[in-house]
Amino acid sequence: MRNLTGLLFAGGLGFMLLAIASGLDFGAPPMLVGGAIQAAAPQETGATNIVTSVVLGYRGIDTLGELSILFAAAASAGLVLGRRHTTAGTLTEGGFVLKHGGAMLFPLLLTIGFYIIFHGHLTPGGGFQGGVILAAAFFLPLLARPGARLHHGMLSVIEGFAGSSFILIGLAALSEGEAFLQPMLVQDALGQLVSAGTLPLLYLAVGLKVGAELAGLLSHLAQTESEV
């Protein structure tokens, strides 16, 4: 009975979507707000990457929400995983190539991660993408040496300060009499590394937070798994 209702629902939903999709005008999206933002973004925010100006400028509070969702997910996972006792990892060490390859990749990944974060307002990329690469840099040594530990205290300090500095930058604009999260210090230097005012700072905060959060979560998972 339950399967039947599920099937009916899925079938109905599929039929409805097909019927709707046949009437949609693909390839000609209405660029009402999008067009206006494309025209105004470089002047208003100073970022050549328009995606960045949307993510951190026009829809900055959405990004703050996304950061909070990630934080909530990590905290919830920590609550669930934290119940088991973590003992020292018992998995065998990685081989020579894995260990030294991981060690050599660490600085490279770090460089790329920060490069992508700092150039978020110029080229495709930004805090979320760079942050994931940073997390990978810290997680790789853990894969190579299952016994190794990440310093969780340090990670949560980085994460907390990065998250709160995102909000502090927004509040700084508020205290200057502007709106919350309003881009400030927008210079007239489109395309330069030092341009786009506070947006790169916001992206740095996003990158550090995402990186610390994911690294902490991954090592948490690895530790919980290693004892099974």
């Binding site: 206006a36 208003e44 400028g57 509070i61 709106a179 919350f180 999260l181 309003q182 881009p183």
Partner: peptide, 8 residues
């Protein structure tokens, strides 16, 4: 928010 007038 951010000083961008809606709907932008």
């Amino acid at each position: 928010i951010g000083g961008f007038a809606p709907p932008m």
